[in-house]
Design a protein around this nucleic acid. Sequence first.
DNA 1: CTATGATTCAAACAGTCGTTTCATACGCGA
DNA 2: TCGCGTATGAAACGACTGTTTGAATCATAG
Lengths: 206, 206
Amino acid sequence: MATPPFNTRQRILGAAEELFARHGFAGASLRRVTAAAKVNLAAVNYHFGSKDNLIEEVFRRRLDDLNARRLDRLGSVAGRADTTLETVLDAFIGPALEQSMDRHGGSAFVRVLARAYAEQDDRLRKFLSQNYGHVLKQFAVEFSRLLPHLDKEELYWRLDIVAGALTYAMADFGVIKRREGENEKHYRERAAQHLVQFAAAGLRAA
Amino acid sequence: MATPPFNTRQRILGAAEELFARHGFAGASLRRVTAAAKVNLAAVNYHFGSKDNLIEEVFRRRLDDLNARRLDRLGSVAGRADTTLETVLDAFIGPALEQSMDRHGGSAFVRVLARAYAEQDDRLRKFLSQNYGHVLKQFAVEFSRLLPHLDKEELYWRLDIVAGALTYAMADFGVIKRREGENEKHYRERAAQHLVQFAAAGLRAA
DNA sequence: CTATGATTCAAACAGTCGTTTCATACGCGA
DNA sequence: TCGCGTATGAAACGACTGTTTGAATCATAG
């Protein structure tokens, strides 16, 4: 159990995350994942049991921490009189932004998340909904408080759109490319700022 | 060359569209596609040459028509004094909406489009950009005219977000589900209406 | 040291992948 | 009816898939 940051487990998870982002879950084979991680092919089934479990673990590793920090920041603003829409949106987007910029290439994970969105696979959907669905519900409660003019259905429509927009934008699939020489950090911060601004206006629309 | 609507070619394209939407490009094998289309396995390579070409053809079949109608509607409002943001957005979203509701299951195609967005594959990206990039450019010109307070970079940021939001929302990946007994047509129309409203407000944000 | 459990390794499993081959059946003008 | 290009069919190609096996190696406790 030595050298925790360069564990066989962690090396596999890191390589899987990167390759799942680039080629999708079906498109990234365990042979390519283990080769990238410089571990033996059998290590995946030894440590995770199956490819499906590996996929779930890729999500769990990031989402446990990510959603904990989201709820933490939400908790510190929820119900307060001076809380704005932008504050709540930032509580959701900010942690994702920070994670995407940490040392060990969390930037691939937001792209994996976008893949998950596109995935129609029932198993994966159920896993994500069962484990992290309560986070979205908590945010919905606060949004509902700040947007009393929207009925429940209308609110859910807009939150759905917001979720899609930020998933897509954070995963930088679009045409916007970082300018040469521009700091990756600055780029992502600006992306988040644009997102919050846009989403807040959309949510407020009459 | 008999029975054009139930051609072997068309049957393959229809089955491929449906299965690509559900399982992704790598996840849907030619054997499952040809089985669903009730044609021989070799028919794909006979009619399309390769799986990659089949994928491109799935896009071409829908996008040629879709983008032509988008540009047509854009042409009838571009440059006019009474044109609003909502009008232009509708020129983009409307045709996609109509196509998704036509008889022969065009509804799967919007989900395939969302898959393509998530795909990092260079070949597919280049194909889409080379063949349909000019459509987005034309719309950007008109948006630029209606949003003079935004500089070029700001505008592109927002259009990027809009593209993401509408792609995901139209593909109904989210949590919003059609109510039982509710007409699919009404559902999609309402989705488009919410989208236009949301996107317009986001684009207008100071 | 030896013993023991955890981990890594090369190799093989059966199954599926995209693609190719070649024989057969079809539609149709001569 | 013949012949010819178009299309479909069953079968096989080698490569690759996720998973399993059993032996080799490692770290550590006694």
